[in-house]
Each structure stands twice: as structure tokens, then as C-alpha cells.
């Protein structure tokens, strides 16, 4: 199909370009916006692969929630990225070296794929490819059976992250008046209004 090939190059091209813009844009807010664009195109690539569920979850979670918080932080903090970048020339060599090492390793991995011929036999197919289930069903069927341990474990990790954030930042502020709606509603006339008979010319 020409169309899907075109769509692939469109999504992939924009994703790579916007990835490049993320690290080169002068304005940090622009960087985050390009990051969002990159996420979005990655979701497009997922759709092309037929992984529609993953695509939508990527948009909902990364673009809809995580990147919003990124954007928040970047907008609120007044980061001078130009100053941060000043030292880039000194560290460029080191960064390049690390990058090249990682690239070389990736090449080795791809080049020597599957060391043992019997590897394929060890790894049973996780989902029977003949099953016509939709994405969502297929994912659910293995997440909650085969990978239930990892899934629930990840849930615990997120719970700990939440507790940690609350422990380290939450402060019970003293002297703040809180609104207790039930108390406001349950006030009766007797405890709020006092009818006083005022004698003429005397006041209270």
C-alpha cells in the first residue's frame, strides 16, 4: 500500500524532526510543544502498526497528562536555557562518545540477533496470532493472567510514589479556616439568630 507507506514516512519524519527540535529549540516551552508533537506522531505510528489501543493510551497518558505537567513546570519555572547550554562545547565530546558507544552496542545487538537458534523455541508466543480478538481484549487477556504479577507490582510502585509525594510535600497548615459544608447546612435557626426585645430609647 502506497498510502500506508506515505503515512509512515509522514509520521516518522515529523517525529524525528520534532525530536530534533526538542533539543534545539531556544525556548523551553517550544521544546515541550515539540515533544508533544513527537508523542503524537509516535501514536500515529502505533495506529499504522494496528496497535490502536496503545496509540490512544499514549495520547491520553503522555500527551494528555504527563506533558501537561511538563508544560506547567516549564512555564512556571523561569529557566534560562541559554545559560544552561553555555557549557555544551566542553561536554560535547563526552556526550558524543557515550552516544557512539550506545549506538555501537545497538548495532551489535541488531547484528547478532538471536544468538542461539533454539531461542525461538524457548519463547512461546504470548498471544495466539490466530485469535481475532481486538487489541484491547488481547492486551487485557495477558495483562491480567500471564503478567498479573508485574502488573500489580507496578501498581504498588505507583502507590508508593503517591505516598512519597504526599509525605514529602503535604503540610497541614495552621490557622486556615476550612469550610465544612455539613456544619454550615446543619446550623439551626436557634443557634444563629437571637430575637431581642429592645425597649424604646434604651438600646441593647
Amino acid at each position: 500500500m502506497i498510502l500506508s507507506a506515505l503515512a509512515f514516512y509522514l509520521f516518522a519524519g515529523i517525529a524525528v524532526l520534532s525530536g530534533l527540535m526538542v533539543i534545539t529549540a531556544r525556548n523551553p516551552v517550544h521544546s515541550v510543544l515539540f515533544l508533544i508533537l513527537a508523542f503524537f506522531n509516535a501514536a500515529g505510528l502505533f495506529v499504522l502498526l494496528g496497535a490502536e489501543f496503545l496509540a490512544m493510551i499514549l495520547v491520553v497518558v503522555y500527551v494528555g497528562a504527563v506533558a501537561v505537567l511538563f508544560l506547567f513546570v516549564v512555564m512556571m519555572l523561569d529557566i534560562n536555557f541559554a545559560a544552561l547550554r553555555r557549557g555544551i562545547r566542553q561536554h560535547l565530546a563526552l556526550g558524543l562518545a557515550v552516544g557512539i558507544v550506545l549506538l555501537a552496542e545497538l548495532v551489535i545487538v541488531v547484528g547478532a540477533w538471536a544468538v542461539a537458534p533454539e531461542v525461538a523455541a524457548h519463547t512461546a508466543p504470548i498471544v495466539n496470532s490466530a485469535v481475532t480478538a481486538t487489541n484491547t481484549q488481547a492486551l487485557g487477556a495477558i495483562l491480567y493472567t500471564r503478567y498479573i504479577y508485574a502488573f500489580e507490582g507496578s501498581g504498588l510502585i505507583l502507590l508508593v510514589a503517591m505516598i512519597g509525594a504526599i509525605v514529602l510535600t503535604h503540610r497541614a497548615r495552621a490557622g486556615v479556616r476550612r469550610q465544612v459544608i455539613s456544619k454550615q447546612i446543619s446550623r439551626s435557626r436557634a443557634e444563629t439568630i437571637e430575637v431581642v426585645k429592645v425597649p424604646t430609647g434604651h438600646g441593647i
Binding site: 547478532a112 538471536a114 544468538v115 542461539a116 537458534p117 531461542v119 519463547t123
Partner: peptide
Amino acid sequence: FAGSTNFDQLAKVLSSEAGLGSIG
């Protein structure tokens, strides 16, 4: 390189000659 994350499977892969020689 080994095609599995499971420890038992890894041990099985590595018990063969081909598995042992892999630099990666």
C-alpha cells in the same frame, strides 16, 4: 541476545555452546 527474560529460560539458553559465546 537470549530471547527471554525468564531466569530458567536464560539458564537453558546459556547451557548451550552458542549461548555462551555471545559478547552482547
